[in-house]
């Protein structure tokens, strides 16, 4: 097997990297791919909770590179599928506990047994990000339609380019169709015109995300979830299927509401 390393990054924090990593990892596994996902946000472990696997962690990625444990001892099997394993971040160490070379070596080893190795990058452009970038075959950049997120994403794209990581694609997260329509939020096309890299997904703002995180069940497990559907489409595109981008529509408003809204503004 010749696995592929897929790094999820963003520059800015809090735009949905770990949530996206969880959904993409789980989604690919549910489609029958063998997936291992590594939380590289060392010191700020989170992917374990988003996936609902926090109680099963004994060893972490730092233990692996320091050879405290065997590789398979630190791989936590998912509750819902046999195809997904998590390697957790160390919680009591910092980014300097691992080097990019060590992560490259680790992913090379994992490529033998897995279709996808998903690397959840920490925010920022320092060491932790470089650890996640160096092994990447493909990079998915997450942004939201806000200027600070887009600006940081552009910076990350620049750094990736200068490191010859040209296989990049973009997820625009938390689009709010009502705000876009009012002209108070950049649209998908606005963001694409600024960043100019291929789009792989548009995820609508979903107020249920907090509750999905509360219970450790990512949105892809919820058939009614709009963000879950968006992630399913992203999975298909990662797997090379051609899926049209869904139109993210606001709730239908009647003529009366339109009139009221018009005078309100």
């Amino acid at each position: 097997m010749a696995g592929k390393v897929l790094t999820i990054t963003s520059g800015k924090g809090g735009v949905g990297k770990s949530t996206s990593s969880a959904n993409i990892s789980l989604g690919l596994a549910l489609r029958g791919k063998k997936v291992v996902t590594i939380d590289l946000d060392i010191g700020l472990r989170n992917l374990d909770m988003i996936l609902g696997l926090e109680n099963r962690i004994v060893y972490d990625v730092v233990n692996i590179v320091e050879k405290v444990c065997k590789l398979n001892q630190a791989m936590i099997k998912d509750k819902r599928t046999d195809n997904l394993y998590l390697i957790a971040a160390a919680q009591t160490r910092d980014k300097s506990a691992v080097t990019a070379e060590q992560i490259v070596e680790l992913t090379e080893e994992l490529k033998k047994d897995f279709d996808y190795i998903i690397l959840d990058s920490p925010a920022g452009i320092e060491g932790g990000f470089k650890n996640a970038m160096m092994p990447a075959d493909e990079v998915i950049i997450i942004t939201t339609p806000e200027i600070s997120a887009v600006r940081d994403a552009d910076r990350v794209i620049g750094i990736l380019e200068s490191n010859n990581k040209t296989e990049m694609s973009l997820i625009i997260n938390r689009i709010n169709p009502e705000l876009v329509k009012k002209g108070d939020m950049m649209s998908k096309d606005d963001v694409l015109q600024v960043l100019n890299i291929p789009l792989i997904g548009v995820v609508p703002e979903d107020k249920n995300i907090v509750s999905y995180t509360n219970t450790g069940e990512p949105s892809i497990l919820h058939s009614q979830s709009e963000s879950g559907l968006a992630y399913k489409n992203i999975i298909q595109r990662i797997m090379g299927e051609n899926v049209p981008f869904m139109e993210i529509n606001e709730k239908k408003t009647g003529i009366l509401t339109s009139i009221i809204n018009f005078f309100k503004e």
Partner: peptide, 22 residues
């Protein structure tokens, strides 16, 4: 709209930053 302003401001600052970083 504020969205248009966001886009224009980004396009200007990023053109500048890209040149500098490159």
């Amino acid at each position: 709209t504020s969205a248009n302003m966001a886009k224009e401001r980004l396009q200007i600052i990023l053109a500048h930053e890209r040149a500098e970083n490159k």
